[in-house]
Structure formats: C-alpha cells, structure tokens
Design a protein around this nucleic acid. Structure first.
Lengths: 216, 216
DNA sequence: CGTTGTGAAATGATTCACAGCT
DNA sequence: AGCTGTGAATCATTTCACAACG
C-alpha cells in the first residue's frame, strides 16, 4: 500500500491503542464508534483520532462514525498483525516464565514457538507447556521455525551476546526486556521494555505533580 | 526549583536514558562525558543532549563536558529519585513474581514494601522474601507504609477495582501492567507497561521495514 | 442533524550554527 | 584545540475550523 513515509511516528504508535479499544467495543457489541468516543476512551481529541486514521485510508462514514469490526480488521492489516508472527524467547528466568504464561499474546497471532536458555539446570525442563532448549540451538531453531521476532529476557550481562546471536540467525525484530541498549544493524527493529525506566518516569511524574500542588 | 512547565515532555522522558548511561560510565570510572559521547550511546545528536540538559540547569563545563558523578546526582534530584520510593505490589501472579525477583528496582530506591493478592491460595505464602497479604489489607498497608507508588500486576478483569482501591488509599502513582486504561483522577499519575502493545508496535516496525526493503 | 476528512494555523520539538568559555 | 549553552531556523505534530457527506 501507499507510501507510509509521511505517516507521523506518534500516529503510527497510537494504532495499537485504537486497536485495543476497538477490540473492547467490538466485544461489547458496538456496531460503530465515533472519533470523539474513541478519543475520549484514550485521552485524545477527536481531531487527532480522525487525522491519525486518515493517514492510512478513508475508513469512516460521515454522520455515522467508524464501523468497529471493519476498522479493527483494517488496522490489523495495516499493522501487519493480520497473520501469525512466530517468536522465540531467550531466557527462561522470571520474566521469561511470566511471558510464557501470558496468554494474551496468542490472541494477537504472536506465538512463542521455542524457548532457549543457557542454564543447564533449566534446559530440558518444561514451562507452561514449552520445553526449554539449549541456547546453542538458537540459530537452528530460528531458521527451522521461521521465527521473525526474538524476545530477550536474559540477565543484562548476557544481552549483547544474545542479540548478536539473534542477528546472526536472521531475526527481523527484537523485543528487549533487558536494560541494555542493543547494538544491532539498522535493518533490525528493536523495542525496549525497561521496568526501571518506567518506574523512574513514573516517579518523575509524581514529583512534578507534587511540585505543582505546592505552587497552588 | 524553576518552572518546569516549559520542559518538553520528550526531553523529560529521555532523562531516564541519560541516567542509565551515566551509571554505566560512572561505574566504568569515566570522570567526564561529552554531549556527543552521551548522544552516540543513546542514538541522539549532541545538540539534543545539550538542549535537554540545559532545560534543567547548567551542568556542563565548556571544553570538558559533564562530570559523570555530578550529573548523575543532579539528574537523580531532578527526577525525584534521590530518595526512597516505597511501593506496593498488587497481584502475585507470574508478572508480580518476576517483579519481586527483579533486584534492579532496589538500586534506584524503589522498594516493594508489601504484596497483596486476592487468591486465598497465594495469600500467606512467601515469594522472594515477601509475605503475600490479602487484598483487603491494601488500604491499611498503603497508609502504614506510606507507599506512594502502586504496581498493578493483576488479571485485566480485576484492574479497575484495584485501581479504585489504590486511589482510595491515597496512592500518588500507578505502574500498570494490565492492558486496561485505568480511569483515575488527574492528580494521580499512571504509566502503562503493555507487553502486547510493545509486540504489536514491533511487528508494525518490522512490517514497515520489510515494505521498504521491497521498494528498493 | 452529527460526523468525517482536510487544508490552514498554531503549537511543539529538533537541528543548526556559533558566541563564549576552559 | 574542544566543548557547552542558546537563539534562530527548520522540521514535525497537533489543533482548529469548516466544507462535504450520509
């Protein structure tokens, strides 16, 4: 489809939020939703919702709004999640285990096809139905499963090596749960989920809110 | 300190990134770091680093750069993490367990002071040194521990009720691991960590990268 | 009516470029 | 020399406001 180079990045990132709200509405049986309703649910203005969606096509009906199920399906196509995304997980520690038990991924086509760990104690055990394989099998596993996304949930010190292995294995994207900045070729997408950063930013927000309280 | 209303939000969010890199440099024994080095490590331009930091004060020395330990301490003050932040965790499932074992929080002054769950099977057990308490004790616990941050790691259906309880308990900030948008008064800060959203955005990025490959 | 889609205006953020300091 | 801090210029995003539509 058309050139998405002109789509503002913030707009592209909000698509997941629209998707989530639409799933809820569709499940609740709403036939349509207006940009105002969608915006209200997400803390955005109606104009922003319309402009965001308009970057990708003409999905709405004047006087009516957007048909939930329709828009849902269109967004899935646009985001590339109208198909299965085979994933591999590296690291079967606490975070890895939590991810394996997190059923919500599968709803969206993300399926953890294999789990790898370096610890001899963990390799061979089964966690939430997944047998843990030795890290040495990673490249072969990625290739044979045609996995495109790698989830890194290892201790920080192992992260660079794991990232390098995933790159060698021709992975396309990495979801990084370690606090390291992974140094990978530009063609490989990385998204970081850092709990400490999230907590710090929250503390910052709370501090600022407290400072504003004091002012008034 | 001065009015921070004019600090761009993106700049404020990058402070955590600067902090993380500075910790590394300080640990490695670097005395100073230039805006260019800091930017390179984080994928930003030197000008942006300087402008970001200049929003909060004059921390650098022309011809030299920034003294790592100094800047580290200043950033901690600015972000409000130069003190302890007592936290409570609600939900002792897989994610909650992972968080309890995540030692990195404590390094930064975030300490989980109490854990609550609604399941009779889990209440009373001890996880990573924390005894799990019944959810009914939440309000009392928050008050007696003077907890300011609540971490929500419960199933999605329980999230709204838990958020309401935390609000009633006079919490200041919520770190939300559920895929729900929590509806709380404006004075209460919420930061969401949604694994599915992260995966979706990653898949989107990968799709776009693939589309660009095809073009060329 | 109410709602979308969209140019135009306003706001916000980043980059540039350089004076001034060490 | 090397580097910071910053006004000015550029670039990006959001909001406004309204014509066109069902």
């Amino acid at each position: 489809m058309s050139s998405r180079s002109r789509v503002p990045r913030p707009a592209a990132r909000r698509l997941s939020l629209y998707l989530r709200e639409l799933k809820l509405r569709a499940r609740d049986g709403s036939a349509t939703i207006s940009s105002r309703q969608l915006g209200e649910a997400l803390g955005l203005t109606d104009a922003q919702v319309r402009k965001d969606l308009a970057h990708f096509g003409h999905f709405g009906q004047p006087g009516v709004g957007y048909r939930c199920v329709d828009l849902l399906e269109r967004l899935r196509m646009i985001m590339g999640i109208d198909r299965a995304w085979p994933c591999v997980l590296v690291g079967a520690g606490n975070i890895g285990r939590a991810l394996l038990s997190y059923r919500r991924f599968e709803e969206d086509g993300f399926e953890i096809k294999a789990v790898f760990d370096r610890s001899r104690d963990i390799v061979g055990t089964t966690i939430a139905g997944h047998k843990v394989r030795p890290i040495e099998d990673l490249a072969r596993g990625v290739a044979s499963l045609k996995a495109e996304i790698g989830i890194v949930a290892v201790p920080a010190d192992a992260a660079p090596a794991v990232a390098a292995m995933l790159v060698d294995a021709r992975i396309r994207g990495i979801l990084n749960f370690t606090p390291c900045r992974l140094d990978v070729p530009a063609a490989i997408c990385v998204r970081n989920v850092d709990f400490s950063v999230a907590l710090e930013q929250l503390a910052f927000d709370v501090s600022l809110a407290a400072a504003q309280d004091d002012e008034s």
